Amino acid sequence: MDRIVLASGSPRRKEMLEKYNIEPIIIKSNVEEIINQDEAAEQIAMSLALTKALDVSARFNDDIVIGADTIVVIDEVILGKPNNEEDAFKMLSMLSGRMHEVITGIAIIKGNANKKIIDYELTKVKFRELSNDLINRYIKTKEPHDKAGAYGIQGIGAILVENIDGCYSNVVGLPLTKIDILLNKYFDYKIL
Rank of each mutant, 00 (worst) to 15 (best):
residue 92 L to A: 05
residue 115 K to G: 01
residue 2 D to H: 08
residue 79 L to G: 04
residue 74 I to Y: 12
residue 39 E to D: 12
residue 33 E to F: 10
residue 179 I to C: 06
residue 189 Y to I: 10
residue 135 I to A: 01
residue 67 G to N: 03
residue 92 L to D: 09
residue 62 D to C: 00
residue 70 T to L: 02
residue 103 I to E: 04
residue 75 D to N: 15
residue 98 R to I: 06
residue 102 V to R: 03
residue 121 E to Y: 04
residue 12 R to S: 14
residue 7 A to C: 06
residue 170 N to Q: 05
residue 62 D to W: 02
residue 111 G to L: 10
residue 108 I to F: 05
residue 167 C to A: 05
residue 143 E to I: 12
residue 70 T to K: 08
residue 49 A to L: 00
residue 10 S to W: 04
residue 61 N to L: 15
residue 114 N to F: 14
residue 150 A to I: 11
residue 186 Y to K: 07
residue 20 Y to E: 07
residue 68 A to W: 08
residue 16 M to W: 00
residue 85 E to R: 13
residue 90 K to N: 15
residue 45 A to F: 13
residue 177 T to S: 13
residue 23 E to K: 15
residue 66 I to A: 02
residue 184 N to A: 06
residue 105 G to P: 07
residue 131 S to W: 09
residue 127 F to L: 11
residue 128 R to T: 13
residue 23 E to V: 12
residue 82 P to D: 09
residue 8 S to V: 10
residue 23 E to S: 14
residue 81 K to Y: 06
residue 31 V to H: 04
residue 170 N to V: 09
residue 9 G to Y: 02
residue 133 D to R: 14
residue 160 L to P: 04
residue 88 A to I: 14
residue 115 K to T: 13
residue 1 M to I: 11
residue 136 N to K: 15
residue 58 A to H: 02
residue 165 D to E: 15
residue 84 N to E: 11
residue 1 M to C: 00
residue 188 D to T: 10
residue 181 I to Q: 05
residue 26 I to T: 09
residue 43 Q to Y: 13
residue 161 V to G: 03
residue 123 T to Q: 03
residue 141 T to F: 06
residue 76 E to V: 00
residue 46 M to D: 04
residue 50 L to Y: 10
residue 18 E to Y: 01
residue 29 S to L: 10
residue 132 N to R: 09
residue 129 E to H: 10
residue 119 D to C: 00
residue 74 I to D: 09
residue 124 K to P: 03
residue 63 D to R: 12
residue 153 I to P: 00
residue 88 A to D: 11
residue 163 N to K: 15
residue 128 R to W: 04
residue 53 A to D: 05
residue 115 K to N: 02
residue 32 E to L: 12
